[in-house]
Design a protein around this nucleic acid. Structure first.
Lengths: 167, 167
DNA sequence: AGTTATTAGTTGCATTTACAACTTTATTAT
DNA sequence: ATAATAAAGTTGTAAATGCAACTAATAACT
């Protein structure tokens, strides 16, 4: 235990919201990658797969909107999911440019496992929060995402306002 | 305005903590990269630079511990910061393996700019939160990081417990 | 109908970041 | 003092992602 941590200050962690969030995200990725390694699926594919499990048959743009990601990232991640046979792409009859992305049996088969891993993370990291704080946290994060999206992907009349509902 | 978002459900956003955090982090990166482009510095370099501005002369391991990142990432990011002349490495006299990382004048010169950008992000995304919620949020995030770190980088007697202080 | 603008996806390229294996130097234990 | 360990950094490799530029197809406009 040598090293010169004597002049390290406890500061620069109070203000910025970005730093702790980035840290949590990276730790989440590591956790997910380890837990999902036996399934041959990586952390980056999880959001798409989970979305598709609830919204089978959507196209890539729908995924882009929901995940607020870049379409090229989505395209590549979908390719990986297809390669691993978790999802399948079939031409969209109404629009020759688009595809309908559907989950395969193999994809459905791991839903439980993935959900369990996601939940174990959420449970573990929030175990120190007081009663009700976790729900508040989720609400705050969603509110922040809306602001962040407006700030970063500020398109005039963007339809990212979470349409749908179905059921 | 065609597209088939009719069967999209509003679900799968309630539970998981990982998804919204990842989303915020990516949006943060985009925001920072855009705002900092004129400075020739990227979002990945910010945490290290900000840490060094408060803790000049530490070595890479100190940075690794503070940022809870991988040492190879830190090594490469430091190389970039050196290439852009924001920081400098000088051999550590007490330990021939290590370096002391110090911020250059150019690095100090942009501190205000960077801080302003960081703050504008934090301010913008939390603008909808109620009074005091932002502080609560930061506290929750820090508590979650501790749990996450234990979960992912669980080393027996890890000294990541934020030593230092040096008021 | 014909031209223009938009939209769905893809590809090249760059950044951020983790893991494993390796080098060099310092520590511990014998 | 030696040998075995551990620690500080580096490098190869790969995943996750964003941006810009491109193709193909649909929608809009005249």
């Amino acid at each position: 235990m040598t090293s010169n941590h004597k002049t390290l200050k406890k500061q620069d962690r109070s203000s910025s919201i970005g730093r702790p969030i980035g840290m949590l995200h990276r730790l989440w990725q590591v956790y997910m990658d380890r837990a999902l390694a036996p399934l041959g699926i990586g952390s980056g594919q999880i959001p798409i797969l989970m979305f598709l499990l609830r919204n089978d048959g959507v196209n890539q743009v729908d995924i882009v909107r929901h995940l607020r990601a870049d379409k090229s990232s989505i395209a590549r991640t979908i390719r990986r999911l297809v390669e691993e046979d978790y999802i399948k792409r079939r031409p969209c009859t109404e629009d020759a440019r688009a595809y309908r992305i559907v989950v395969t049996a193999k994809g459905r088969a791991i839903e439980g496992r993935v959900h369990a891993v996601l939940d174990s993370w959420s449970e573990a990291v929030t175990q120190d929060l007081a009663a009700g704080e976790r729900e508040l946290l989720v609400r705050m994060l969603e509110a922040m995402i809306l602001q962040a999206h407006d700030l970063v992907r500020c398109r005039p009349e963007d339809d990212c306002a979470d349409e749908e509902v179905e059921a």
